[in-house]
Design a protein around this nucleic acid. Structure first.
Length: 792
DNA sequence: GCACGAGCCCTTTTT
DNA sequence: GGGCTCGTGC
């Protein structure tokens, strides 16, 4: 029985071949594939086959609507998703899909910028700075501006600059706008413009620049814009709910039509606006923190008045139980267009719940449960995923998995390309590709140690400033640097010589791998690691050898495709891939020996994926929803947390497990956490609790226990981990208390001062402070994080 | 110039 | 439990 039974005539394709391309799709899905002309918004619930629809639509355009491959631009959220989409289209219509542009926004912009960089004075071999590089550069700028990094943290500046760029606010506009602002705003403005200047000098672009600069070029150079508007007749965007303003404008610019114009060389034909098709789910918008704007999807129909909207609500992924839980949680968000996912698959097993004493106990539960599922239901490790709110939480799970011998892979976290040794090696390559890349140059100038210290570096920087030349040029004439030691001059000469030699190696046709080998060998990097007593350096060597094989693969692929290998291409690739692009393919490995590995990742990384068995750990107030969303004072943040919960729940196909730890170590110290509100929102009939919070009363009354957890651990002595903590009531080590919510007028009790009443509260979060009147004219100011206070 | 240790922030989430 | 900065001693 389906909702569509009363729809008389499902859409049909024009031809038999076309009919084959929409076979097996339900009526709204077919309609989305076949839709013609006006902009199209596909509002798709979780697991409703949106990527499938997009894939089939592209195939249909190419096979049935006479669209050329080069006329299609498809934007996905990750490179991995792009690769999959290209493969699927190929499977449907053959190899000509290969030439189609399917990529992330960032990769697409790099391709455009490579061609058009000259128009904004960039050399085409520009470096791409990731978030860490940007922060490093911002730190240099803050130092240069003589600002106190404590008052003006480069991190915060970096984020704010990123936000401005996502809003397409350039540094001049911002400087003009903030001239009247407060001191911090003006400092931010100068940091922004200095930062941009330094980026340009380094011939580098940061992640946000990739989009913003592309938009700027399209808007400033009509001929360039026209080129792409004529070219792309179909623009398709997946995960539209996670696009930011700059990306929105980029899409608008690309899809605009071209009017007919008469020029000296004749008449150019008009081109109508490109067909735009976007897919998204407002309930899965989880990237507002980096500028994603839900308005892009909610107001699509206002932005494009002739737009058509198609709703996909049937879920093909999860059981009814899982969907009910997801629907219940997301319903807690106000101001959303109600959308009810439904499925005609069965109820499936109940959600399994577990309340652990500690994060170790919780991890042990996960491991036990996986063992049971393996034994009783033939579940393989590759079927299982564990999701958590923050990267740091993977550690507890990993420890247990290592101990019991479960195979796993952590996706994200300290990413491969963010490891120190990998970044160092890549910095050498970047400097060789782009000699003006100061950030990377200064990164490796003394790595491994070669006697060019801070002092020498400062002398060179001073020389550069005095002569009005770049840092690189100054480095070529160290003897002219004011006050430099003779020893340093020798060291610097040897260093520049090294770089020249390496450049020669590459120009001699070494390929990227050959160059990388030369870098590691000749710089002494390998020698240093090999000779190190630090066991960590062992894994560093492994990582470098892994990087070397990535380079080899790249060279080989270039040879196979008959393309001339380019260092720029290699660097671009490693700059833009996330570890999310290396998620193991679990589904198709189930034949015998290779049973895949358990996937560990954050909820954010989980977007767009699905697993038969999912564990959601750390469902605690303060962990998930995250403390910052609770104390930030912005209800929007809490809504985003809820959407994140919705995303997490809907990743599961068959079995969902939710768990929490009553006590979790934060900053090395144990801290109490009450149950997450998201758990309470799931109808209790859906959950099979295997263990609930232990209480001193021995009962399973969860509401009573919650109060206990909040006010400071009255726990039974059956549970060892808790007994230890409970043994010293009121004197728990400082800094690890939950910050209790207090209001003026509340009655409180203090271990030492006795009874009192709250006069006022100042600050929030970790810095929340209460003024408490304990009588006798004694008003104490107490930091809630430290004070042994209990609300009465 | 560099190695080492103490003290300091930290932690959301990522293309 | 970690990564970074600063001070100290060589």
């Amino acid at each position: 029985m389906s909702l569509f039974d009363d729809i008389a005539l499902p859409p049909t394709a024009a031809s038999a071949a076309g009919e084959a391309l929409i076979e097996g799709l339900n009526p709204p899905q077919r309609e989305a594939v076949l839709h013609h002309g006006s902009p199209l918004l596909i509002v798709a619930g979780a697991g409703s086959g949106k990527t499938r629809v997009l894939t089939h639509r592209i195939a249909y355009l190419l096979a049935e609507r006479n669209v050329q491959t080069h006329q299609v631009l498809a934007i996905t959220f990750t490179n991995k998703a792009a690769a999959e989409m290209r493969e699927r289209v190929q499977a449907l219509i053959g190899p000509r899909a290969k030439a189609m542009w399917v990529s992330t926004f960032h990769s697409a912009c790099v391709r455009i910028l490579r061609r058009e960089a000259g128009s904004v004075g960039l050399k085409s071999g520009f470096s791409i700075y990731d978030a860490a590089d940007s922060q490093r550069l911002m730190a240099m700028v803050v130092r240069e501006l003589d600002l106190d990094p404590k008052r003006y943290p480069p991190r915060a500046f970096s984020t704010q600059v990123s936000n401005l760029k996502n809003e397409l606010v350039d540094e001049e506009t911002f400087a003009a706008r903030s001239a009247e602002g407060d001191h911090t705003t003006r400092m931010l403005a100068s940091a922004y413009s200095f930062y941009q200047r330094r980026l340009r000098q380094a011939n580098a672009l940061d992640f946000d620049d990739l989009i913003m600069t592309t938009v700027n070029i399209l808007q400033a150079f009509p001929a360039v814009a026209e080129h792409y508007r004529r070219r792309f007749r179909h623009v398709l965007v997946d995960e539209y709910q996670d696009t930011n303003h700059a990306q929105y404008v980029l899409v608008r610019e690309l899809t605009r039509g071209v009017p007919a114009v008469t020029t000296q060389s004749g008449m150019s034909a008009a081109v109508p606006a490109a067909e735009l098709c976007v897919v998204g789910d407002a309930d899965q918008s989880i990237y507002a923190f980096r500028g994603a704007s839900i308005r892009n999807i909610v107001e699509f129909e206002q932005d494009y008045p002739d737009a058509r909207t198609i709703l996909l609500e049937q879920n093909y992924r999860s059981t009814q139980t899982i969907l009910q839980a997801a629907n219940a949680v997301i319903a807690g968000n106000s101001a959303r267009t109600p959308k009810k996912l439904w499925t005609d698959s069965g109820a499936g097993p109940q959600i399994v719940g577990y309340v652990a004493d500690s994060e170790h106990d919780e991890a042990a539960f996960v491991a036990r449960q996986i063992g049971d599922l393996r034994r009783d239901h033939g579940v393989t490790p590759g079927d299982v995923a564990v999701f958590y709110r923050t990267n740091a939480m993977s550690r507890a799970v990993e420890e247990v998995f290592v101990r019991v011998g479960l195979p796993y892979k952590v996706v994200g976290g300290t990413r491969f390309y963010e490891r120190r040794e990998v970044k160092d090696a890549l910095a050498y390559l970047r400097v060789i590709a782009n000699p003006t890349d100061t950030v990377n140059l200064r990164r490796i100038i003394n790595v491994p140690k070669r006697g060019i210290g801070e002092r020498a570096e400062a002398c060179i920087a001073q020389l550069a400033e005095r002569e009005g030349i770049g840092f690189v040029q100054a480095l070529a004439m160290p003897q002219d640097a004011p006050g430099i030691a003779a020893r340093s001059v020798t060291a610097i000469t040897a260093f520049t010589r090294l770089l020249e030699d390496l450049r020669t190696v590459y120009e001699g046709g070494s390929g990227v791998a050959g160059l990388l080998e030369a870098v590691l060998e000749q710089s002494g990097y390998l020698a240093q690691l090999r000779g190190s007593p630090d066991p960590q350096d062992e894994t560093r060597l492994d990582n470098l050898s892994e990087l070397l094989s990535v380079a080899r693969e790249f060279d080989e692929a270039a040879v196979a495709d008959g393309v001339s290998t380019s260092l720029d291409d290699f660097l671009e690739r490693v700059s833009l891939v996330a570890d999310a692009d290396e998620i193991p393919d679990h589904a198709d490995e189930a034949d015998g020996a290779d049973q895949g590995v358990i996937t560990l990742m954050t909820l954010h990384t989980a977007k767009g994926l699905e697993f038969p068995v999912v564990f959601l750990v750390g469902l605690e107030e303060g962990t998930f929803p995250h403390q910052r969303a609770l104390t930030g004072g912005d209800p929007k943040e809490l809504e985003e947390e809820r959407r994140l919960a919705y995303v997490g729940i809907t990743r599961a196909r068959q079995r969902l497990h939710i768990s929490r730890a009553v006590v979790r170590a934060a900053w090395g110290q144990p801290q109490y956490f009450p149950e997450s509100r998201f758990v309470a929102e799931v109808p209790s009939a859906l959950i099979d609790w295997q263990r609930v919070e232990p209480s001193r009363y021995g009962g399973a009354d969860r509401s009573g226990d919650r109060a206990g957890a909040r006010s400071g651990g009255r726990y039974g002595d059956r549970e060892p981990a808790l007994a230890t903590l409970a043994a010293r009531p009121g004197s728990r080590s400082p800094g690890n208390r939950p910050v209790i919510a207090l209001e003026p007028g509340d009655r409180v009790s203090h271990d030492a001062f006795g009874l009192g009443s709250v006069v006022r509260i100042e600050g929030s979060g970790d810095k929340a402070m209460a003024h408490v009147d304990f009588g006798g004219g004694q008003v104490k100011r107490l930091l809630l994080r430290y004070a042994p206070l209990e609300k009465l």
